[in-house]
Design a protein around this nucleic acid. Structure first.
Lengths: 212, 212
DNA sequence: CCCTGTGAAACAGTTCACAGCG
DNA sequence: CGCTGTGAACTGTTTCACAGGG
């Protein structure tokens, strides 16, 4: 696949957002086309930003007519999805883990499937929760290999987050989404995204204070 | 303390992280001082970055000796906390809402307190959950005013996220942390941070695929 | 016209590199 | 020396502004 130059995480995130907004928009408004400024309004970004992002997936609209939604969505998908799909493991099936599962059990995207949950608490394992089978921690390596899992979601307490990351990486995972409030260290060939909710809230609080 | 030249959200987020890391580090390692490269290693950023960030709170370390942890933490707190604290409302007491509550019920920071939860489901209201009293939605305005709530956390389904945001803003909230997978629109004097978990996961999946 | 595509400018954030000091 | 503080350089991202087209 030839894709021109590097695409930044920010662009990828926006493309993912555009795809979802466009899918909803096409379904709800029965529209087939959209302008850059229309999509911009939906996404809360500038029209120029939308055009740049769309450039990066190699799709072209037509002047005065805008973008063909279906075609645009297909181009975005071709650029950001793995052709064969990707399997995801969720470690930590507490409140947060279950909340995450419910986001994905809707079955919107078959692209990314949470195929296994793991937890140390015996009462949470051996069950199927929101369509996701849950296993005890010590089966992680085995299940990860069997299910071809490449992505891990860390939803465990901070005290065991690094250890969890290490085990996931050891089991062949190359992408991690970490919700534990501690930065985790991984080899450079593994991509990590830290989502630290308390930091987010403190940041909101800071700017809220100054926006009055 | 008129250092309030523009500080970026990214810097604020890192400062919040530094503060937590330093607090833990001082407690666990019984250390009183730290070098920029030491803090950098803990936070997973560069030493130059740490020094820049610390500059922005107006604290100075000493050459060869590094930073005095206690003093540094105090400077960070003085810079990012509201002197009188801030009250937070959580709307949506489902799995995600409860997960968020458990992050803050630890009582680490008395600075930011989730003082009220709101939900439409009657069985979730009228109770105290993880130290947070839960009310029915129609008491939002009243409670928000009484408790001097300035920050709102949106943990409701996408379909009612915008409506929820509007009600919070109407009740005087000036900062929003939105977990619903839809961008919300607010007046410019309100600060919003969108945390879209499905987008995060798709972004991780994209880069995992390409990480050599 | 009113769109899109895009070079160029502007802006933001990060790192470099070194002076200065204990 | 080995550290911090910081101007300057650099890198990445967003916006501007306008050519080109149906």
């Amino acid at each position: 696949m030839d894709w021109k130059g590097r695409v930044s995480p920010k662009t990828i995130s926006r493309l993912s957002l555009y795809r979802r907004l466009l899918t909803d928009y096409a379904a709800n408004e029965h529209a087939e086309r959209i302008y850059s400024h229309g999509l911009a309004r939906l996404a809360g970004v500038s029209a120029a930003q939308v055009r740049r992002d769309i450039m990066s997936v190699g799709y072209s609209g037509t002047p005065n007519t805008g973008y063909e939604i279906r075609a645009l969505v297909d181009h975005i998908s071709a650029h950001i999805d793995a052709p064969e799909g990707q399997q995801v493991a969720l470690v930590g099936v507490g409140n947060l883990g279950r909340a995450i599962l419910s986001y994905f059990s809707g079955g919107r995207r078959a692209q990314l499937k949470v195929v296994a949950g793991f937890d140390t608490a015996p009462e949470k394992t051996g069950r199927v929760l929101l369509g996701c089978r849950c296993y005890p921690m010590d089966q992680l390596a085995e299940v990860a290999r069997r299910e071809r899992i490449t992505i891990g979601i860390i939803a465990v307490p901070a005290s065991v987050a690094q250890e969890t990351a290490d085990r996931l990486v050891g089991a062949g995972v190359v992408g991690l989404l970490n919700f534990a409030p501690v930065p985790i260290k991984v080899p450079l060939n593994v991509f990590v995204e830290n989502v630290d909710i308390t930091i987010k809230l403190e940041t909101v609080a800071f700017f809220a204070l100054r926006s009055r």
